[in-house]
């Protein structure tokens, strides 16, 4: 589904990401962990064609993301607040995302219905612009918007950070359900090892831009990761 070939990204001569080869299969739930500066966000930005690689390429369904835009129609993503149009209300923002993806009014209705629990009464009908929401609630808006189109590929950068505990659990359940029912391919980065091992069947550990572990999640994966990150 997604494939990185000889991917290198450097800033001012310092290599921040170096991935010779990485393949993510369709329907795989892929977790990315690593300390600050490990290159997680850089990797996601490369997949979304937000930055240019110095070398190598990212293929989405076999097409280079640089040269095509087809992937945009089946990829949902939320990396940070830079994705939100903060002077809109959440409703307006959802309508905008729906419109550029050619969703119908009925689709929006259904989406609002589906995400009612996830929003927990905090988002819809508040009469506020997104910029006036708290960080956690902004995050809810962004994550929900990334799922509006029922994408085949979902890319979330640290989705659990700044969410309240209930929403974290709801998000985990939601992600598991999406994987089971829709066979959604998911790329999720996180600082929280327990969340990511719970949701993802494959974990990749990045350190200073290099892939140093690539493991199938098992019983003892969490322990393994914890011991790796222990100081």
């Amino acid at each position: 589904m997604i494939q990185a070939n000889k991917l290198v990204k450097a800033y001012n001569g310092t290599v921040v990401l170096n991935v010779p080869e990485l393949k993510i299969e369709k329907g795989e739930s892929f977790g990315l962990v690593g300390n600050n500066g490990a290159g997680k966000t850089t990797f996601f930005r490369l997949i979304l064609d937000l930055i240019q690689a110095n070398k190598g390429e990212v293929l989405s369904q076999g097409n280079d993301v640089k040269n095509t835009v087809v992937w945009k129609s089946y990829t949902g993503s939320y990396l940070d607040e830079g994705f939100l149009i903060e002077f809109l209300t959440p409703e307006e923002y959802f309508n905008f995302v729906a419109s550029v993806n050619h969703l119908s009014k009925g689709d929006i209705q259904k989406f609002m219905e589906d995400f009612k629990d996830f929003f927990d009464g905090e988002i819809i009908g508040k009469g506020k612009y997104i910029r006036d929401f708290s960080r956690g609630n902004k995050q809810k808006v962004g994550i929900a918007a990334s799922l509006m189109t029922n994408p085949e590929v979902l890319i979330l950068d640290e989705p659990f950070a700044s969410l309240d505990p209930s929403t974290q659990i709801r998000l985990k359940n939601l992600l598991k359900k999406l994987k089971e029912e829709k066979n959604m391919t998911m790329l999720i980065s996180s600082h929280d090892l327990s969340h990511v091992t719970e949701v993802c069947e494959r974990i990749v550990v990045l350190d200073k831009g290099n892939v140093i572990h690539d493991i199938k999640t098992q019983e003892d994966t969490l322990k393994e990761l914890e011991s790796y990150f222990a100081v």
């Binding site: 064609d49 937000l50 945009k72 129609s73 940070d80 994705f83 939100l84 995302v97 550029v100």
Partner: peptide
């Protein structure tokens, strides 16, 4: 402030 969103979204 939302330029990344414009690029990553399916915007024509």
């Amino acid at each position: 402030s939302y330029f990344d969103g414009i690029l990553a979204n399916n915007i024509d």
